[in-house]
Design a protein around this nucleic acid. Structure first.
Lengths: 221, 221
DNA sequence: CTTTTATTCAAGTAATTTATTGAATAGTTG
DNA sequence: CAACTATTCAATAAATTACTTGAATAAAAG
């Protein structure tokens, strides 16, 4: 049993997962799936890809083991195959951010205020939520909020931020989060709140990382 | 500043790292690099690839930020750009093993004894080493052992195992490790030792994971 | 049973990737 | 400086990937 091929076969299998991560559009689809289950055409809409193309990418993801699908009536719903996929994406992000100058440049030019925002670590937020010291804002679309959110968080999509300003306790600190560590929505929300003189911070990562860390999650209402 | 392209640009960058992981030969090179620094032709030899091909793969890995290089005389030495790359490989492995049936099958058919070996977790080994309760065997080639190993470990390449048998305290438990969680050397060593009636176990992962976890490491001698 | 909707399939094209080969470069050694 | 060694570069062929287009399914609704 020449085990000489074993190593190569095994690495070839690992490479299947690597291949799934080798395309930007697939990574974007994975980030949407990390927010919760989505149908093919919902994913096609948010990603801006054609339906056929989206379907093909999703099938590749399924073959690589990163997602699972479920048919319900006309629709096919895709979801991540486990929380470990969120962890894989997180580590991929971190490695890229640490070792690729282009990523550092992109983050700097689009998320300029990054350093000034003093992001709040997950555990710290959890404590402050328990002690009722902060108002937590979920700035994602309502569907994603409904599929799961940080306990006690209020869903305020970015374009409704101004309308909700008056309902917020101006004395209490605000922490905003969205899809992930590089999601601009939370950055933008914090920037706008600070313009109004409100003490606002950003959660270090987004909801998927919160959930993957095993922290408590609220659904729907 | 239409930030609409930001997300796509960012994911395209992350995909550069994914691309680096999308080829089995590159993953094998990364595993060798996780044992320590290596020159191009050393990597070409161990991987069985042509020198030119190896060089090109290494350049791709460098462009993706996963490895760094250093020229010394005629030789160019490549190394991982950080311990986070080891973590990325670990998570990739774990995800593939958990969600790809083909991987489970491969592991089962080549590492059949896997379940019987009762792998020892890192922290547990560290304790037992401190209390001098175990003999630790590093079954990798001498060069890799020299570049770093578990403190107190004895370097016994697999083909010298029989010769060293008599030097081992038959009463004391043995823990063997090699390059990583799927490296056959340690599996093989444990199997042979057990045939001789010696109590032997396998370290859960290999040396790179031990080092990446921040546990103590000995060099050379 | 026809129409509509959501998804997949199949075919085709352009672009990219992998590995091979032989030449080019840079540093070392006799 | 001529010969040698380690690495990279450049050109190529074969295979794979990404996306588009239009047709094929399959379930639901009229």
């Amino acid at each position: 049993m020449s085990s000489g091929h074993f190593k190569q076969d095994l690495f070839a299998q690992f490479a299947r997962v690597g291949k799934a991560l080798s395309n930007g559009n697939r990574l974007e689809l994975l980030e949407f799936l990390a927010q919760g289950e989505h149908s093919v055409d919902a994913l096609a809409k948010v990603s801006g890809l054609s339906v056929a193309n989206t379907s093909q990418h999703l099938q590749q993801l399924r073959q690589s083991g990163l997602v699972l699908s479920r048919k319900e009536g006309l629709k096919v719903h895709y979801r991540l195959s486990g929380e470990d996929v969120v962890e894989l994406m997180s580590v991929l992000r971190r490695v890229a951010e640490r070792h690729l100058a282009d990523v550092q440049q992109l983050v700097q030019s689009y998320l300029t205020v990054k350093d000034e925002l003093e992001p709040v670590p997950r555990d710290e937020l959890l404590e402050r939520v328990r002690d009722d010291l902060v108002t937590v804002l979920d700035v994602r679309p309502p569907e994603e909020y409904a599929a799961g959110h940080v306990p006690g968080a209020i869903n305020v999509p970015l374009d409704e931020l101004e309308a909700h300003l008056e309902q917020l306790d101006p004395g209490q600190e605000i922490v905003a989060y969205c899809r992930g560590p590089h999601c601009i929505l939370a950055f933008e929300a914090v920037a706008r709140l600070r313009e109004k003189g409100i003490a606002a911070h950003r959660l270090e990562d987004g909801f998927p990382e919160w959930k993957a860390a095993g922290l408590p999650v609220d659904m729907a209402g």
